[in-house]
């Protein structure tokens, strides 16, 4: 699972890291670090809860995780209607 971080929308509520401190890392001012987050197995529940807790909607659950991970060679485009 992957979380897309819209850094410019982050206003430092720190609700994400209150839910899942290991997933959502904040800088010294208390705002989310830039860069999308690849979530490890076992942390997915906490991570999605953290993403859903952002008041600014700065965190987006990537809706197509497989498409990003699975290379085209294995899953040719034609298979997807």
């Amino acid at each position: 699972m992957r979380i897309i971080v819209h850094k410019t929308k982050c206003q430092g509520h720190a609700r994400c890291s209150a839910q899942a401190p290991d997933v959502f890392k904040l800088d010294d001012e208390g705002y989310i670090l830039p860069g999308d987050i690849e979530v490890a197995e076992g942390q997915q529940l906490l991570a999605s809860r953290g993403a859903r807790s952002c008041p600014e909607r700065a965190l987006e659950l990537d809706p197509t995780p497989a498409a990003r991970v699975v290379p085209d060679a294995i899953e040719p485009r034609v298979w997807r209607a």
Binding site: S53, P55, E56
Partner: peptide, 20 residues
Amino acid sequence: REDNRHAAFGYGPHRCLGSH
């Protein structure tokens, strides 16, 4: 209540500095 994204501390750049 879970996923409680309330507005008590405002939204946007002026989000309450003292919220934590």
